[in-house]
Design a protein around this nucleic acid. Sequence first.
DNA 1: TGTCTATGTTGACGCTCATCAATACAGTCT
DNA 2: AGACTGTATTGATGAGCGTCAACATAGACA
Lengths: 125, 125
Amino acid sequence: MSNAKVLPLLETANGQAVVPCCPPLTERPMTAEEAETAARMFKALGDPVRLRLFSAVASHEGGEACVCDISDVGVSQPTVSHHLKKLKEAGLLTSERRGTWVYYRVEPSVLAAMGKLLATTATAV
Amino acid sequence: MSNAKVLPLLETANGQAVVPCCPPLTERPMTAEEAETAARMFKALGDPVRLRLFSAVASHEGGEACVCDISDVGVSQPTVSHHLKKLKEAGLLTSERRGTWVYYRVEPSVLAAMGKLLATTATAV
DNA sequence: TGTCTATGTTGACGCTCATCAATACAGTCT
DNA sequence: AGACTGTATTGATGAGCGTCAACATAGACA
């Protein structure tokens, strides 16, 4: 199945360009809709196990990893599967089956958009 | 009361320098401890109401706002107070009472650290 | 002192979530 | 076909969260 389905934070314009959903947090108060969208992604990263899984995929070579490579995070296999599904539903990961294994990869544009959300315009330390 | 208490994502070294808790998500798999720390902050931003409150404070002039300026987010006043407390506990906001009003301000270094966490090393769109 | 406004706290309710054991499904290899 | 491995789904359980009404507290001002 194709997994280019939902990217809550970005909306694929014509297949190439991506438009961030929301302005930087510091630019102006977010609207209810913007907040709803962005909060979904923050929430997905708001669990330690999911954050480790996401980081494991993101830091793996090629930006992708099979489940077997990343599933030693201290919880059962069904729980790992459950969390990967959540990350997928949040638009942070995509998955693809290749033979025996299923590979997950990060949606790079989403990472960039989240980074922009948190970008401090001029508030350097 | 002084509110320079807990900054989960950063650790104030000697009062000036701040050290990010965790490497960028894409650099290497996060450890359980790092994930626990960072997930607390993502989780705090993982609720739409909290995200709007945070954004309202962050975008307010001077980087601070009194509760009365930001409390029209569609929930009751106790709920606003509850969420502001959560954001404070997560180390994202600090508060200070000045006369009748209580002012909240963002912890700028925390914003920067979260931005770094999501920084894509070379994965530009 | 008393009253008024701004904000925080308490207690309760319903809902969502993280987790696991058991089971199901998909692909590979005999 | 049958056995085996890797991954997803189901169902259940306990914990945590978002929300509000009611109440409490803090400061300002008369």
